[in-house]
Simulated assay, not measured.
Amino acid sequence: MSTVGAITHRKHTSMNVPWKSCSIFLYLCLLQCAHKVVPQQFLLEPLNLTTLQGFDAQFNATVEGRWKIMTWFVKDCFVLNVPVIGNITSASERYSAQFCTPGETNCVQFNIHNVTREFSGPVTCTVLGEYGSEVAQLSVQESGTVNIVKGNEKATEDEQVEFLCVATAWFPAPSITWTQNGHPVDSSLFNTSSMEDGRYFNATSVFTFKAVNNTTVACQATVLSLTNPVSSSVFLVVFAKPPDWTVLIAVVLSFSLFALLVLLILGIMFCYKRRKEKKPNYQREMSHRVRTQSQISSVSATVQRQGTVKAGSAPDDQTSVTPSENTDSGFHQTKEHIYQVGNAVLMKNKVKTMFMFMCLEDPFRTEWKKKYTLSYTNVSINLTHAFWGN
């Protein structure tokens, strides 16, 4: 065999490394001794190694007793040869080996420099002779970026706040955690999901909580090979919650509506009572007015009639009767006249009394006052004419 297989590094370029020192004898011996293992005489460690892309991978092979040649394979590709005596031969600068302790040949350290994901797979160490071979597994991981979307936030006390963390270009899918002021957050308080995107994985995580006070929120992403997680942090500023006037406003509004309702009911009751009291008074007043007007009209008519009779009949009576008749008639007439005048005077007093009663009952009704004053004056004038005969 004259060449070694291609090895791809981070930028996905490949190179072919010729191998010049292989011999048919070496590979015949390897074929003969590959499956012969002596317990506790040959040890390869670690058997499972996980490292980060760009770092070195290191394996140690410990052999008890005397041995001559040790050979290393990466993903079934021959990459390095270590003789007990002589120079170490490597297929590429990416591979190197040395004895763990100078001057001692029982331990060999094998190194793969600047590993990429293309190196992931089996790493085989074979010792010529009766020792056989041991196989270890190499896993190469990649770390990406972490970012909390929107950056710093502001919130009011007791407000629900949400933070979104995005991790991109990881392999394998990263594990995401959150911290508040440096204290880990329980995993039940946030949700994380991941999705494969070609050769990489992207992950998102949503953290929701109630704002209480100013807090430093950090999102961390990591894989097994990372010593320290990749993190992104923001600051949450919490403002005091304004006073809640809702309850107070509701109470004040309730009392106001109740008071308004009470006042409305009282007003309706008062108006109804006033109306009920005013209606009988109005009816009585109208009745008094009708009776008074009727009496005034009657007195006025009587007085006018008596005055007319006296003025038209007195001269005839005096010329046609005898002195005795005149005396009796005059006495009778005078008596009758006095009686009638007395009635008129009596009616006058009644009118005056009713007029005073009406004025006292309602002094503000000026129209009625003027009317009854005029009637009272007419009655007085008529009574005067009736009494004196002129």
Score class of each variant (00 low, 15 high):
R10M: 08
S14D: 08
W19V: 15
C22Q: 08
F25H: 13
L26P: 00
Q32L: 14
H35Q: 11
L44Y: 01
A57N: 05
A61R: 00
E64A: 15
K75N: 15
N81T: 07
N87R: 08
S90G: 07
E93C: 05
Y95W: 06
F110Q: 00
T116C: 12
V123Y: 05
C125D: 04
E130P: 05
G132A: 06
V135C: 07
E142M: 13
T145Q: 12
T145W: 04
N147Y: 06
T156H: 01
F171T: 02
A173Q: 11
P174S: 04
T179Q: 14
F190S: 03
E196L: 08
F207N: 01
N214C: 07
T215R: 03
T216D: 06
T216Q: 07
A218F: 01
C219R: 02
V230N: 03
S233R: 01
F235V: 13
P243L: 08
W245F: 13
S254D: 06
A259D: 07
L261R: 10
L261Y: 14
V262Q: 13
I265E: 01
I265S: 11
L266F: 09
G267S: 12
F270T: 13
C271R: 07
K273G: 09
K273D: 05
E285W: 02
S287R: 04
R291N: 12
S294M: 12
A301I: 04
D316R: 08
D316C: 05
D316N: 14
G330S: 09
F331H: 08
T334L: 11
Q340K: 02
V341W: 02
N343D: 09
A344E: 07
V345F: 06
M354E: 10
M354Y: 04
P363H: 02
F364K: 13
K370Y: 10
K371S: 09
Y372K: 05
T373A: 13
S375Q: 12
S380I: 08
F387R: 08
